[in-house]
Simulated assay, not measured.
Amino acid sequence: MPCRAPLAPRSRQPAGPSRSSRRYTEDPDRDCRSSPPVLKAFGNAFKIPDLRKKILFTLAIIAVFRIGSRVPVPDLNFSALAQLQNSVKTQGALQFIDLFSGGALTRFAVFSLGIMPYITSTIIMQLLTVVIPKLEQWQKQGEIGIKKITQATRYMTVVLALLQSTGLVFLFHSQFDAIRVFNPPRVALIVLTLTAGTALIMWLGELITQRGIGNGMSILIFTSVISRLPAEGSAILAQAGAAKFWFLLLLGIGITVAVVWMEQGQRRIPVQYAKRVVGRRMMGGQSTYIPLKVNQAGVIPIIFASSVLYFPTLLQNVVHWTWFQTIVNNYLLKQSSVVYMFIYGGL
């Protein structure tokens, strides 16, 4: 809606306009140029009490999430974490998980697993809905069935977090020697800590969805990704120089614009309603369209493929089979491998 200048008040003096009337009539577009629409809308959001509470609540949950990403688990060898941070850059799956955890994986923090177990369990439940008749029946029950599926997704998230945290503990001990005291009680303590951290992330995301703004899981993923930008940008600026830094920055902005443009793209399927006679009137005959998005799945397949490729990496530290470790190290950990690209593209 275009911005309109307020109407000039009526002047009681016929001789000429007063100062107040000249103030309104001299520059009618002054209020429109005073502040950009985006900043004005952002400022108006804090003037609404309910919306202000939701924004502040969302920011508070994000702060708790970032604090949990920096709190380490017990009994860590902090000198070995430097080796972990250097080696994770050469491993595709671990680097991807570290990106979505906001750097918590390389710190071996409470939120090291991030939101990945929940996303994986959500995708698995969606696939099982087509296979298992009971889940399909729940899906058709409406809100009650959705609550049952959500509860089952939570239980599966805890199970996946338990398995992934166990593999992660063995990985950090065997590859990086990041755990000082490696015995069953300490391993159980760290595994339970990581699993509880994943459950807490799941709860925080649901709180944002219920009492905050937007989808909680998406906001937490976005927070984790952008939290790495300052460190990565400063590293590129220090190592490659300003020219390459600005080139990559502009390239990233261009890719973001292209992704948003593709995400908003849709194919409109025309639909023509047949005419029908009701009494003495001719009804119908209208034409409309069905909007089909170009990218129906979004980013979910990418996250699911990375989670699937990440699981054998953790499993090889628990199952010490020579042939299995050879396959994982030669094919599943190298992004340049043909097998890796084929599996990643297929998933």
Rank of each mutant, 00 (worst) to 15 (best):
A109T: 02
M116N: 08
L135R: 12
S35D: 09
P312H: 08
Q325A: 08
L51P: 01
P2L: 12
L250N: 11
T209M: 10
A82F: 06
G285S: 04
A258T: 14
V260K: 15
L56H: 01
N86W: 04
Q335Y: 09
Q85Y: 04
V277W: 09
R276S: 13
A109V: 00
V328H: 01
L332M: 09
L249V: 03
M1E: 10
L160T: 01
I132L: 14
L84C: 05
Q266N: 05
L207S: 07
P14M: 08
V257N: 11
F57G: 03
I123M: 14
F57K: 02
K40E: 14
Q139P: 00
N317C: 08
Y310H: 08
S234N: 12
Q175D: 11
L248K: 08
Q95C: 07
D177W: 04
P6C: 09
L51N: 06
S79L: 10
D75G: 00
K334S: 04
G102Y: 04
T288F: 06
A109W: 00
I221T: 01
A231Q: 10
I221Y: 09
F324C: 00
Q325M: 04
L192S: 14
I226K: 05
G284H: 03
A231Y: 03
F182S: 04
I61P: 01
V158F: 08
L194H: 01
F111H: 05
P36E: 07
F42Y: 05
G284Q: 11
S218Y: 02
L84Y: 02
K148S: 11
F172A: 12
P117S: 07
Q264E: 15
R30Y: 04
I144C: 12
G241E: 13
N317V: 00
K334L: 08
A109I: 00
P36H: 08
I149P: 06
A305R: 07
L135V: 12
Q264H: 06
L292I: 13
R267D: 09
I201E: 06
L250F: 09
L168W: 00
Q137T: 04
A258F: 06
V260S: 15
R30H: 12
L314D: 02
F182N: 02
I269R: 12
P74Q: 07
R268H: 15
P117G: 06
F108N: 02
R33E: 11
S21L: 12
G103R: 13
V259Q: 15
I115S: 07
T313D: 15
G214S: 10
L94S: 05
Q139T: 01
K275I: 01
N295H: 08
S336R: 13
R276I: 00
L162R: 03
I226P: 05
G284E: 04
V71T: 14
F342T: 13
V187P: 01
Q151M: 06
E232S: 11
T150H: 10
R107E: 05
L135C: 13
